[in-house]
Design a protein around this nucleic acid. Structure first.
Lengths: 239, 239
DNA sequence: ATAATTCAATCAATCGATTGATTTAATGTG
DNA sequence: CACATTAAATCAATCGATTGATTGAATTAT
């Protein structure tokens, strides 16, 4: 009987489990990586456990042994994404919440722009970003349970920080619905321009998104989001 | 042997074929509608032909008979979407290209805002919009051939019109890369706020998106896009 | 009556899961 | 250290269930 990975490991538990130097941890890493690749490209239902095992260079039975089946492997992928995304975002938003609560509007805006820069770079250039986005779009967004996982582990903490930054930069209260929705609008710009890459390449007559194209994207989104911040700041400076 | 529907009917051919009052056309309509429902919710691979047939209240064999198999039904769905989306967009952007090429900046901006309004209403309230978005996200975006279909039938004509409007409203040339990317940013805001609805509801503490919430969304996106247009207009008025 | 359409039944192929044997790693003992 | 014992992990083979497709007969529309 295999020792199946806990269904809901914290990101830290997961990190520890996968970092170990034993055959079990390596196989788990290989399986998650392979599963993420196939799930991201062909979707969960469109991926066979055989192809996952083949990519991971192990036997089909390993999936049941280590993850209690295909569904368990999918859960592990969600947790892995939560972990990996948490790492990326902790780099992107290194400061503690307390540290950003008293920034000047100018400093807050600088921080926002720095954050956007890093997010664009990550989504547009990171290899795994494509898989993660594909996987989340195809599978996670329609699965209430997994949305719950990612919402609390990743999305809400991120949004809380960004909201504080937006609040400092615009003078609007953190509780403002307008502010919250504006942040969705901002994230939408970032993600869509990555997600719709096939359309972007066609429309822009680009062969790929290299350093030059990356700068063009950053430039436009900078302007767009700065304009948004300017507008949100209107009539709020005295608050 | 069944008379299989042409693989690449134009939207008009498709409309005519589906509008007919014979048993064949009705079964085709039912099958496409059922397939769109299942493909949009569970994905192509995750949908069995049996469940499609059951929803459409017909026999499995009808799929092969009318569409030459599951893959053919998927193609028909893409074409159907192209048709339906073309209808919606023709209402949203009724004017001919020539009619908008000489609008004043103010009139152009009004037209843009009117268009955005209608797009938000459609994406946020139309029943089928959810299916279409789900289907395109899960299946079409990773299928080069079907991207080709939708790009030329829907996306490019739409973008061309919007680009002209943006050009008139901002003074920037229609060939401007900045303008084209800004339009992607605008569409990204629209789509993401619909696509990420589960996250939006959680974050905003909304139970659903009713008339009140719709107005809030419109208000924020109006401000955001107006700010973007203002910024793009800077230093271009004299051009 | 002739063609068009639908149907139940069945096909081979593939799916995820499981089995029991086998191999590899870890641990204990002298 | 060498060797034995146990536990952990992997393997080929196989399971029943489900998949998309097909068939030829039955039904319906023209």
């Amino acid at each position: 009987m295999g020792v199946v990975m806990s269904n809901h490991p914290t990101p830290d538990e997961l990190r520890e489990a996968l970092a170990a130097d034993n055959p079990s941890a390596k196989t788990k890493r290989d399986l998650i990586e392979a599963a993420l690749y196939h799930f991201g490209h062909e979707g969960y239902a469109g991926t066979s456990t055989r192809s996952i095992a083949q990519t991971a260079k192990t036997n089909i039975a390993s999936i049941a042994y280590h993850f209690d089946g295909k569904a368990g492997l999918k859960r592990a992928c969600v947790n892995f994404i939560a972990m990996a995304l948490g790492d990326v975002l902790s780099v992107i938003m290194e400061k503690k919440l307390a540290d950003i609560e008293h920034l000047s509007p100018e400093d807050a805006r600088d921080k926002i722009m720095e954050m956007i820069d890093r997010m664009i770079t990550f989504t547009q250039t990171n290899q795994r970003a494509e898989l993660v986005i594909g996987f989340m779009l195809k599978e996670v967004l329609h699965s209430p349970e997994e949305i719950e996982t990612l919402y609390h582990l990743i999305f809400e903490p991120l949004m809380d920080r960004v909201t504080v930054l937006f609040s400092r930069a615009t003078g609007q209260p953190v509780s403002s619905d307008e502010l919250k929705l504006a942040i969705f609008a901002m994230i939408g710009q970032l993600l869509y321009i990555r997600l719709a890459r096939p359309l972007v390449l066609k429309r822009m007559n680009w062969q790929s998104v290299g350093p030059e194209e990356l700068e063009q994207i950053k430039s436009v989104l900078h302007r767009s989001i700065n304009a948004l911040l300017d507008d949100l700041s209107k009539g709020q400076k005295d608050a």
